[in-house]
Simulated assay, not measured.
Amino acid sequence: MSERSGANSGAVAWVVAVATLLGVAIALLTYLGLTPESGDAQSPTHIAQSTPHATGADADRDVGVPETAAATQVTPPNADPGGASHTPDEAPVALMPNVTGTHWNVAKEKIADLQYDLEESFEPRNVRDGTVVAQVPRAGEQVTVPVNITVARKYVTVEASELTQSDNFRFSGPSLYSVDGTQYRNSFKVFSQYPSASMEWDLSRDFDYVEGLIGLSDEHAESGTAVSVEFRTDGQAVRTESTSLGSPIRIREPVHDAHRLEVVVNTTSGTAAHLVLADFRFLAKPTPP
């Protein structure tokens, strides 16, 4: 019994001694930096597995098991290398062409595929009738809907002598008459010595303006003579002017949608005189471009 107890005590002492030596050896190796680096250790993603029933070389075979699956980047078929994607039905940006200064017949071919609003400008301009004078948007800018185009137009001029006049013996013309030292062709003269002399034209709603000069005839008026001139459309007075010898007045009066225009002359002072309607003409809009 004592011998077995002594043997056991010797074995325990031997194990303790071996463990102590191993601990000292590991500590020494750690101090000298000779332990394996963490990077040299077997990766967690590569774990040695032993098949329970495998033997020999198969028992020591390592089976690689990935810890996480790597992400796969898929480029959409409609994406460009820079990363910007475009929907398949995205339309290209349209830029406005330059049509200002061109005739409308040419301009409309350039914007045939665009929706546009056309405006006519009758302001006096030294350009050919039908010339594009403004556009929105401007040339090179992105197209907006609708495009706005402004075209210069010139009125169609019809001389007063070409229209139907009332049968009134109190006027004469058309002829050449002198007003304030200037002679005017294609003019009319109204005899204001009668209580209410007048002239009348049939417009048939075809015109926008009547224009011309009104003044007393140099040959048939005395100093101090004055007359009133009243313009009536379809019987309604729309404008009244007074003029005297040597003081003619240039007029431009709207006659939109009027059937008839009447000019009524009355002497307001002095002796009876003759009123001259010089260069009288009517202005109509041209046909749309």
Rank of each mutant, 00 (worst) to 15 (best):
T55H: 11
P174M: 08
R125A: 10
E241S: 09
A48M: 05
S196T: 12
S5C: 03
Y155N: 07
K285T: 11
A284E: 06
V255F: 01
I149P: 00
V156W: 02
G173E: 09
V158W: 00
H53S: 12
R281D: 07
R250T: 14
Q49N: 12
A7V: 08
D257E: 15
L216G: 05
P81S: 12
G130Y: 00
K108R: 15
S196E: 15
R232I: 01
F171W: 14
D58F: 02
T150F: 04
V12Q: 08
N168Q: 12
V106Q: 14
L114V: 04
R232C: 01
E230G: 04
T267C: 01
E159W: 03
I111M: 07
L163T: 08
G6W: 10
A278G: 07
V18T: 03
N148E: 10
S50Y: 00
S2L: 10
K110L: 13
T87P: 00
Y116N: 10
K154G: 10
E3Q: 11
N168C: 06
G173I: 07
L283F: 10
T271N: 13
D167G: 02
R185C: 01
S228D: 11
V93A: 13
I249H: 07
M96V: 02
R250L: 06
V18D: 02
A258T: 01
L32C: 04
T164Y: 04
G181I: 06
N8L: 15
A221Y: 08
A27D: 03
T182H: 12
I149L: 14
T72F: 02
E37Y: 02
D167Y: 07
Q165W: 09
Q135E: 14
S161Q: 12
F169V: 11
Q42L: 12
Q42I: 11
P137I: 06
A41F: 05
A27Q: 05
G212V: 05
V276R: 06
V265P: 01
W104N: 01
T267D: 03
E119H: 13
V132M: 03
Q42V: 11
A107E: 06
L245V: 09
S269P: 03
V190M: 13
D167Q: 12
T68G: 08
A134F: 03
S121M: 05
T287K: 13
F169S: 13
D60N: 10
T164C: 00
D80T: 11
E109S: 12
S85V: 13
G6L: 14
L32V: 07
L261V: 04
R4I: 05
P195A: 14
L176Y: 09
A71V: 09
E200R: 14
Y116P: 04
L95F: 15
T20C: 09
G83S: 07
R232H: 07
D218P: 06
L22N: 00
N126S: 13
M1Q: 12
R4S: 08
T45L: 04
V145K: 08
I214Y: 15
L163E: 06
S187D: 05
T131H: 07
T150N: 04
V127E: 06
V158T: 15
K110D: 10
A284L: 00
D257V: 05
D40E: 13
